[in-house]
């Protein structure tokens, strides 16, 4: 088991129960998607996993090690679990060149020679289908789709085992979305990385995941294999979602 989310609760002042008892297991190679309407707690779940938000209750266990503090994530976890954020316009610091941005991903890695650095950068840029000569350029010179590729490249720098993509294509044009999704699909073949793919769009989810968790008001209401879920959804909310996305009735 790669990652276990164990009965996590998180309430924001309001009070908003963003996570209301979420449990989830992710096995290696088992690409998991989380779907649910906006505001159901998907981002909060990703942030709890990454240690950006402290849960009120519950725990996150990675590779058998419970992650209690920010410090406990600084070692192996920070190398093997990487996150791609929704907004490519704010996830890259405008003050740094692509080279510096990629290099920062290696901060906690053992020291490498400049040559090794460069090879690694070329490799990840190739994985996301970007030319290597962009290293000296700055984020503002790129489009949203290109930035998201750079953000993905940054996440791949340490060859992570788990890649959390929080609405990674939601803010992009449909065409660019398709390109990035195709690139991610291809990546699945080329690297042993497990996707934790978050989206409010069922169509997107179907392409990339093996298992799908449906989230509703801070809970996971259904967690099943992709085909089971799409063909025979058991929870009424899943049926509503499917109907909205594909415009068809599901037989009860």
């Amino acid at each position: 088991m790669l990652l276990r989310v164990n009965d996590v609760y998180k309430t924001f002042p309001g009070p908003v129960a963003a996570l209301d008892g979420v449990s989830l297991d992710v096995h290696s190679g088992e690409h998991v998607s989380i779907v649910g309407e906006s505001g159901c707690g998907k981002t909060t779940l990703a942030r709890v996993i990454m240690g950006l938000v402290d849960p009120d209750e519950g725990s996150v266990i990675f590779n058998g090690h419970p992650l209690l503090t920010a410090h406990s994530r600084r070692g192996d976890f920070s190398r093997q679990v990487r996150m791609v954020f929704q907004d490519p316009f704010s996830s890259l610091d405008p003050r740094y060149s692509v080279r510096a941005i990629l290099k920062e991903a290696l901060r906690r890695e053992p020291k490498m020679t400049p040559g090794e650095d460069f090879l690694r950068m070329r490799k990840v840029l190739d994985l996301v289908r970007m030319p290597a000569d962009i290293l000296t350029r700055y984020p503002h010179e790129f489009s949203g789709g290109e930035r998201q590729r750079i953000a993905i490249a940054r996440a791949l720098m340490t060859s992570p085992k788990l890649l959390i993509l929080d609405e990674a294509v939601s803010s992009l044009d449909v065409l660019v979305q398709q390109e990035i999704l195709a690139m991610l699909e291809e990546l699945q073949q080329r690297m042993p990385v497990t996707y934790f793919f978050i989206s409010h769009n069922l169509r997107v989810v179907r392409r990339l995941s093996r298992k799908v968790a449906v989230m509703y008001q801070g809970r996971i209401v259904e967690y099943a294999d992709r085909d089971t879920l799409f063909n025979a959804p058991s929870h009424p909310y899943t049926q509503v979602l499917l109907k909205a996305a594909f415009n068809y009735e599901v037989s009860p």
Binding site: M50, L52, R73, R74, S78, R82, D93, R95
Partner: peptide, 24 residues
């Protein structure tokens, strides 16, 4: 900002983040 959050998830220390991504 997301780039600060990203830096945190990549294991940068608070001091590194303040010096690289906040004060500049």
């Amino acid at each position: 900002r997301d780039y600060v959050l990203a830096a945190r998830t990549m294991g940068l220390t608070d001091m590194e983040i303040v010096m690289r991504h906040i004060l500049p």
